[in-house]
């Protein structure tokens, strides 16, 4: 019984962390039709902001606050420098952002060295959950992820700004002729997506090994989550993260983690093969 609760908590933990990363990806991928291969590196930058800030000031929380801000700025810069030239060239967004990921990753290596850094856990206590001693910080991450997902949903579906952004995505020319500044929407959306990724990296830093390769580790599962859940849908991100996160954790409980990753990938392939528009989209 205890083992089951622990497993459920772990599953929720990984899924919600994955959701955090995937949300940013869906905002950029699903809503803007830009495939951001550098998303994992935005996650990485978030973690390294925490490393730098907590190293300099000793405060994790300050780092956590600064990370999304830094990433929003990075997002704006990237959008201005690179993305805005290639919106209409969908496949090229994959290539260009992936080149960007190389540059960022190597930049991090140059600045911080190739080794792993560690960030001390700001909430080192454990909390009793239905008889299982579970790390408080992980519970904090889960709560934060859920809150952020709700906030993102609220932003896009309940506010005027969100409506405008969705209008631009649905029909750019129409939106422009209705007086919406489409360029500003593009920048805003990309910045929000980047900030989400950075925030995810920052919040995950204390419980992961912070090294230049950590981006790829989340990039693959989050892309799979987007494809499995349904490309253009925030709800799809939730479902996809649930499937991928759940499968990974549950498989890892029984077999080695490497084997689990292989199985999860195969599972995702089967789902995508039969439901090309994801679980949300159903059959074509």
């Amino acid at each position: 019984m205890q083992a089951t609760i622990a497993l459920l908590l772990d599953t929720a933990n990984f899924t919600l962390a994955l959701l955090l990363v995937t949300l940013g990806l869906v905002v950029i991928f699903g809503l803007m039709n830009v495939i951001n291969m550098a998303h994992g590196e935005f996650f990485l930058i978030g973690a390294y902001v925490v490393v730098a800030v907590s190293g300099a000031t000793g405060s994790f929380w300050l780092g956590l606050l600064l990370a999304p801000v830094v990433l929003a700025l990075v997002g704006l810069l990237v959008e201005w420098l690179i993305i805005r030239h290639i919106y209409h060239r969908f496949i090229d967004t994959i290539l260009a952002t992936w080149g960007l990921s190389l540059v960022i990753k190597q930049g991090v290596v140059v600045l911080f060295g190739p080794g792993a850094q560690s960030v001390p856990n700001p909430l080192p206590t454990a909390v009793d959950v239905f008889g299982v001693q579970y790390p408080a910080y992980r519970l904090f991450i889960m709560a934060l992820a859920a809150a952020l997902a709700l906030a993102t949903y609220y932003l896009f579906f309940r506010t005027k700004l969100g409506l405008q952004i969705r209008g631009v995505i649905a029909n750019r020319a129409m939106a422009a002729s209705l007086g919406i500044n489409t360029r500003r929407m593009d920048r805003a959306t990309f910045a929000v997506g980047s900030a989400l990724a950075g925030f995810a990296g920052a919040v995950m830093a204390p419980i992961m090994s912070v090294d230049p390769q950590m981006g790829v580790g989340f990039l693959i599962p989050s892309f799979l989550s987007v494809l499995v859940g349904g490309v253009n849908s925030l709800v799809g991100a939730l479902i996809g993260s649930g499937v991928i996160g759940g499968a990974t954790t549950i498989f890892s409980a029984g077999i080695s983690q490497a084997d689990a990753q292989i199985l999860v990938f195969l599972l995702a392939m089967i789902i995508i093969r039969f439901l090309p528009n994801g679980i949300i989209g159903g059959r074509k």
């Binding site: 799979l224 990938f265 392939m269 995508i272 093969r273 074509k284």
Partner: peptide
């Protein structure tokens, strides 16, 4: 597997082949 009907667009294909490469390396290591 990949070129079934219109199941995998260019973007899907890129991501699927990317993941396949990662998985192949993991499998080779084991």
């Amino acid at each position: 597997i990949m070129f079934q009907g219109r199941a995998l667009s260019g973007a899907h294909l890129a991501i699927v082949t990317l993941c396949a490469a990662v998985v192949c390396e993991i499998a080779a290591r084991r």
